[in-house]
């Protein structure tokens, strides 16, 4: 009987402690898991033309790239984004830039795109509605979807802000696997970047 009591008490305290540790888990306020599917959305591009994700249902993959005109990390990737577009657009992959920063105007984005010879559509996410929907927080940050808008990859373009120190080309690897009909081996990656400046 004493043994049973001791077992019950131990189990009770163990359960209590585990609940306490769960209760004290801290949250950053963001979703822990990525959504499996992205809801269709429409946004105007920098020339005022509205685009919907559903327009690209025939693509083998849609690469959404949250970018910035001012963020030095995003800017370190300008040439890499141009090269990626060049290398993959003829393979049925659509590249779309999204600018959700409140302080970056359409005129600034247009000038920046021209300066860096961006050959992809850039959408202006006024009031960061799409950044909020996808829980995008940094620039650059990419989301890769298939034509049915299932999320296949989320994270960084590669693992170094310095192009000559890149060890893993995470986005390229994901795209190659998608084109090869394979499951993306590493569907989520992270890197330091500039916070997306949202509206208050």
């Amino acid at each position: 009987m004493r043994k049973l009591m001791s077992f019950v008490l131990t189990a009770f305290f163990a359960l209590g402690l585990s609940n306490l540790s769960q209760a004290s888990d801290l949250k950053t306020g963001r979703q822990n898991d990525d959504p499996k599917k992205v809801e269709n959305f429409s946004l105007p591009d920098i020339n005022g033309k509205t685009h919907s994700l559903s327009e690209y249902s025939g693509s083998k993959a849609i690469v959404l790239m949250f970018i910035s005109t001012e963020c030095p990390v995003s800017n370190a990737y300008n040439d890499r984004m141009v090269q990626l577009t060049k290398d993959y657009k003829d393979k049925g992959i659509t590249f779309i830039g999204i600018n959700s920063n409140k302080a970056e105007s359409v005129a600034d984005i247009k000038q920046h795109a021209a300066d860096h010879k961006f050959d992809f559509t850039i959408l202006k996410d006024d009031k960061n509605i799409i950044a909020d929907k996808l829980d995008a927080s940094v620039t650059p940050e990419v989301y890769v979807l298939n034509g049915s808008l299932d999320l296949l990859y989320h994270g960084r373009i590669d693992d170094s802000r310095r192009v000559n120190e890149v060890k893993t080309n995470d986005l390229r690897s994901a795209l190659d696997e998608i084109l090869g009909g394979k499951k993306v081996t590493n569907p989520k990656t992270k890197a330091f970047g500039c916070t997306i400046k949202r509206v208050d």
């Binding site: 950053t28 963001r30 940050e141 990656t189 992270k190 890197a191 330091f192 970047g193 500039c194 916070t195």
Partner: peptide, 19 residues
């Protein structure tokens, strides 16, 4: 020397945005 390692070491939910 590995952004992701440091980010996850501090908090697995952190996406790497600073500050």
């Amino acid at each position: 020397n590995n952004d992701e390692k440091l980010i996850n070491m501090i908090d697995p939910e952190w996406n790497g945005a600073v500050p």
